[in-house]
């Protein structure tokens, strides 16, 4: 390796330390890893944004519904106003239970014996559906959070491997020759961490939010089923 070449290489190395240079010089496998991690990062942030908005919306709706529900308004009226449009959260539970109630009394009250159990079942199913809706894609966050560092590490190991192979080939161990390869290899780990850290944090936070919402739904379902079973008993007795 003649000195001019080395100097040129060093200059090139200095020129190519930009983010784009780091990416473009990398080995094909490392490029794939980087692109994959970038995609994972975009996806995880999309999920984070969506879920955060969803939870905010859900919480607001629950608050509003509880307010309306406990305001003393007739349940029939409430049901009529809600049944016409798609609902979610507590309203969905309410609508599902009321629909079951209505159906049971439509035929002259013949199917009242196990109505309370049926309503419980319906409420359970609705809760499950709602929680599933809330928790969907959270697993993706968990996966990204735990796997990204390893994927990034894989890219780094691969990059350093190629670095060392080129060292062996060029028989030149000067830092200027080694550094770009190491830098681009470490860049893969950096992206991996960049994707993983928010994913892990968001997963924990969103998981807690989902658990809280589930608890709230279950609480409402219990209260509502209690009200309905009292109504059933009163009607049967009457």
């Amino acid at each position: 390796m003649d000195p001019a070449e080395v100097t040129q290489g060093a200059l090139q190395a200095v020129n190519e330390v930009s983010l784009w240079g780091l990416f473009w010089q990398a080995h094909f496998v490392v490029k794939l890893v980087m692109l994959g991690l970038l995609g994972a990062s975009v996806w995880s942030w999309a999920i984070i944004v969506d879920k955060t908005l969803l939870f905010m919306r859900t919480r607001r709706q629950m608050d509003r519904f509880e307010e309306v529900f406990w305001s003393g308004q007739s349940l029939e009226e409430l049901y009529r106003s809600l049944a016409s449009r798609p609902v979610s959260g507590m309203a969905a539970l309410f609508v599902a239970a009321m629909r079951e109630w209505k159906r049971s009394f439509e035929g002259g009250g013949r199917a009242v014996a196990s109505l309370a159990q049926r309503i419980d079942k319906v409420l359970d199913v609705s809760i499950q559906r709602e929680v599933e809706r809330l928790e969907s894609k959270l697993l993706v966050l968990a996966t990204i959070g735990s796997a990204s560092p390893f994927i990034g590490l894989f890219g780094t190991v691969w990059g350093i491997m190629t670095s060392f192979r080129s060292i062996a080939a060029s028989k030149n161990t000067s830092l200027a020759v080694v550094a770009p390869g190491i830098a681009e290899a470490l860049f893969a780990t950096a992206i991996g961490l960049f994707a993983a850290i928010p994913a892990v944090i968001a997963y924990n936070r969103l998981q807690a939010e989902a658990a809280k919402a589930q608890g709230r739904l279950e609480g409402f379902a219990d209260e509502f089923s209690a009200i309905l079973s009292r109504q059933i008993d009163e009607r049967v007795a009457a």
């Binding site: 975009v42 996806w43 995880s44 999309a46 999920i47 984070i48 944004v49 969506d50």
Partner: peptide, 12 residues
């Protein structure tokens, strides 16, 4: 309804 991807893409 689900602006996540757009927001995330723009952010990245």
């Amino acid at each position: 309804q689900q602006p996540g991807f757009m927001v995330s893409g723009l952010g990245h």
